[in-house]
Each structure stands twice: as C-alpha cells, then as structure tokens.
Design a binder for these strands. Structure first.
Lengths: 287, 287
DNA sequence: AGAGGTTACGGGCAGCGTAAGGATC
DNA sequence: GATCCTTACGCTGCCCGTAACCTCT
C-alpha cells in the first residue's frame, strides 16, 4: 500500500470512474487501473464494483475512503507545517480575470515564484463565468475573479475592491449619455449587467452599450473617442499621463468591482490556500 | 514522500540511530541512510542532526514524528478494519515458555496459520525471563510467558492458569520430602523460587531440589524414579495412562502457574493484539 | 461504433545490498 | 582502532505508457 495508490483510489472514488481520475491526475488510464488492482491485491479486498458505466465503492471501499481521507489530512498538515516551499513542485493552474491580470497579477506571480521556486504556473485569463466553470471542473487550482463563487466546495477569500472612474477621450467636453456609447465589460459578467441596468434607469432605453471582452481594447476605444466608459482608476495611469484620456464625473459611479481568490476546499488544498493568501498580500500591496 | 520513508524515519527517531533502525527493519544500513536522505530531500528539510554517536531529531524532525505517528495510527486502522488477513505477510516472532509449548501452542499456531495463511512464524521456546528480555529488545512480536511484564510499553493479556499436581513414579509409595529430590522448573523462574520457598518452609533446609530447563526431561526423571515433582495436570495424561507415573497428594500444592500473552504497545501493534486474542482462544479451548 | 475498463509488453528508473570512504572519540 | 554514518556502484524489480482486447449500450 503506497500513498500514490491511496491517492489514486480517492480520486477514482470521488470522480466515480477510472478514466475521469486518470485525466485528473495526468496519468494514462491503464496506470490508474493498475494502481487500483495493486491496492486491492495489497489489501486482498475488493474496493470497487465494476460496471459498464463506471465504478462504485463496495462497503469496504467506503470504509477505506474515510481512512484514506484521514491520511491525506495528515499528509497536507505535513506539507503545511514541515515541507519547505522549495520542495513543492508540479504545475499550479491559476485563472484570473483581465482586470487582475492588468493590475497586481504580475506582483502575485513574482511572490509565488519567490516562495515556490520549483512550482510552475499555468495562467489562464478569462471572464469570471468561465473561470468559475473551470474551477468547478477542476481545471484550475486557484481562480482570481469577480466572486464569490456560491458553492459548498469553494472557499472564497475576499480581495480588495477595485474602484472605477469614468473616462473619456481627452478634450471631448461634456458627455451626453443619450448620444455617446458606453464601452463596458463583456456580456455575461456581473458588472456589465449592473452597468446596463444603471444606465437604463438613469438615461432611459436610448443608451447604447458596447461590450468588449478585452479591457485594453476598451480603453483604446475610449481613447479613440468612440465612446466613454467606467474603468479601473488604477489602470488609467499611463494613458492619463500621456493625455490621451481624461476622467469626468457624471455624478454617479458603478459599484466598485469586488474580487475573490477562490479554490476548491475538497482535497484539503493547502497549497491553494496559501496561494490565495499570497494573492491577497499582492493585491493589498498595490493600493 | 512514501510510507516506507516515513516508517524508516520513525524507527530511526525512536531508536536514535540509523544502525539500530536498520537492524530492527531487517535492512542494510546504507538503505536506511538512503531512505532518510530521500525523505529529507523530498521535504527539503533537515530532520536529524548527525553526531558521531547517533542522530537526534531537529525541531522539524520532532514535528514530523508526531504527524508520522498519526499516519501510522490510521495505517494500522486500515489493517485492522479493511485488510483481509490473507494479505498480511512477513515474519511473526513468537516466544513461548515450555509449558505452553507442550500444551496449547500447537493449537494456537494452527489457528494462526488458518487466519493468516501468508504469515510465517518464527518460534522461540525459552524461559520467561529470557522471553521478557527478547520482547523488550524487540526481538519478539508476541511472548507467551509467565507474566505479566511490568513495563509501561507492554500490554499483557491474561491467559488461563495452569493447574499443577504432584507426580511420582508409579508404585513408589509414600513420599518423604526429606529424602526424595523434588524436580522442578529452571532456576530464575518464578515457580522455581516459590516452590523452593514453600518446600523449605514446610520441610526445612534439608530438602533437595533439582531444576531442569526442560519440562519433558523433568517428567522423564520423575517416571524414572529419580524424584517427584509438581507438573501441569493436563500434560500428564499420556504417561499417566501408560502407568509410568501416578498422582499423589502431600496435602498442599504450589500455586497454579499464571500466564500472559504480552506484546509491545508502542507501534500500535494490531497484529500482535489480534494474535494475543487468538492465543487466549486457543488456551481456553483446551481446558 | 463508442464509452469504459483490463490485459500484454517493452523500457526507464528507483531502491536494494556489497564494498569502500570519511569523521569523531 | 572502533563506532557510526555516507558515498559509490552494479543489479533487480516495479511502474509507466503504448497498443491491443473485452464488454456492455
């Protein structure tokens, strides 16, 4: 009986299939089968009932699952309390929404590589809805998105809000929302819906809203005078100094964007836990 | 980090030396060194301070020891509750005093091999003092002896007392303890000392006592008329029926012999625990 | 035919024992 | 020199991935 056998057993038990576990663990499917067979042979006990559409735990498999989870609880404690961070290796999959990618994500990744010098990072920048989906599908280890994610298996660490301001092309003069398009976030995002709702309530159904999945494309459109829009104050710096855009005040602001660092709690994920902390530090440092 | 690395670490920590652990584990000494080095490399943490006369735990080593012990607690639970007995293999070292070897030990070994068909047994028959010493030196996994062993690390399971009766050669007539040697157990055993004390108290210092480390030699001497002696009633059967010896009653009897099945509790020894139970069953069955 | 799992087989690597090499008393 | 641990070095055996096979829908 080895750790790897038990870990494999747990993933197969959790995901209900050899194939699914093999994908989760970046392993060939026969390798997972072999590990299970080896474990069953080591204990001389049948752990799964095989059926054509997957596997289910036997009574003894259920019992073993409890014990195996206890083992990995202790295992994670060892990693947290004793293992030096430089011993942690493998790939850590981070998902971030673009706002974060454009602000403190570099600082976060720098801290990460400093604390975990042997850990490689796989970064995906996407809209929060997709990040949420990827996290729940275990395609990500940590998601930095507009949260929180309401799911019993997800832990959400609140990150500092991102304040928005209105921006327009420099020297554009008074803004008429009835005539000027508002350039906003991608559809299917919470700030987009909130912005559209606020605009309609204030200026009626005549308001035009452009949406863009790219934050930098948005600010370029604003700079080009195509429209105006709310934009994270802290991102405006360069173009503001270059005199391409300027801030204006229509008398109201969309709500600040609230972000979370979110990760699955299920496999007692101490690495993701610590990385969420690092993200919080990095995000707080910028302000 | 593997189970074997952790197990090796624990033994080195407990015994305070690589060499001692290697003996305990039936492993070459470099193999133990290599396992420790591999563990330290896996955690990227120094676990031992090496000194010329052994090793001592570092602060982090101390912490790991606690976690490792938790791991093996769970590990033992898995063995107890889930592992099929036929999966248990290796060598189980049993020590037994001769009285037991001559009575229910065969029954015990039969039950043992039935429940653990892949377990091989290493049997040592010796006097209880030596068995005690071997057990404490971890040279035995289970000792069936005149117990209990008063040591905080030893668990003693009481076994049924063995009743004694006086025997002499058939047709010898009235026994005069002043003239007839008493053939008894080996020196350095509790029943020997108790017998000598009782004889002196009753018949004065003139009584002669022969001691023998072999129970079957004793009964042969009795049958040959060399002397008389107390002897487990249940062992007398064959020679009694053959008319070689006969029981007699001098009006008193030595106290029954009290036995225990004893094992070390330290490494949460569930196998020894179960085997002690089997021993109790085997011993009780005979009566 | 396709989805899910097992069996067959060759190659790479981890871990063992033997033997030699420090270091400290 | 004795004791204790580490380094060096073949060798074996385990475990992985590829590929073929089995079995239900």
């Amino acid at each position: 009986m080895t750790f790897e056998q038990l870990r494999t057993f747990l993933w197969v038990a959790r995901l209900g299939g050899v194939r699914r576990a093999s994908e989760q663990m970046n392993l060939s499917q026969p390798a997972v089968s072999a590990r299970l067979a080896a474990l069953e042979d080591a204990l001389k006990v049948r752990l799964f009932e095989r059926s054509p559409r997957g596997v289910t735990l036997t009574r003894q498999g259920e019992m073993l699952k409890d014990y195996a989870e206890q083992m990995f609880f202790v295992h994670e404690e060892i990693r947290r309390r004793i293992t030096h961070p430089s011993a942690i290796e493998g790939t850590f999959r981070v998902g971030a929404s673009e706002t974060i990618a454009q602000t403190w994500l570099p600082g976060f990744l720098e801290r990460l590589s400093l604390e975990y010098p042997r850990l490689s990072v796989e970064l995906s920048v996407d809209i929060s809805v997709n990040l949420r989906e990827s996290l729940l599908a275990r395609k990500l280890d940590l998601a930095l998105l507009m949260g929180p994610i309401s799911d019993y298996s997800v832990v959400n660490i609140a990150l500092p809000d991102v304040e928005l301001s209105w921006f327009q092309a420099a020297g554009r003069g008074q803004v008429d929302f009835a005539a000027t398009p508002v350039i906003s976030y991608a559809r299917n995002t919470r700030p987009y819906r909130e912005l559209v709702e606020a605009l309609f309530r204030r200026y009626g159904p005549g308001v035009r809203v452009y949406s863009s999945t790219s934050l930098s494309a948005s600010i370029q459109m604003i700079a080009a005078g195509i429209g105006v829009g709310p934009y994270p104050s802290m991102l405006a710096g360069e173009r503001l100094r270059a005199g391409q855009i300027e801030q204006f005040d229509p008398g109201w602001l969309p709500r600040p964007l609230s972000f979370t660092a979110s990760y699955l709690s299920e496999p007692r994920n101490s690495l993701a836990e610590r990385c969420a902390d690092i993200a919080l530090e990095a995000a707080s440092q910028v302000r």
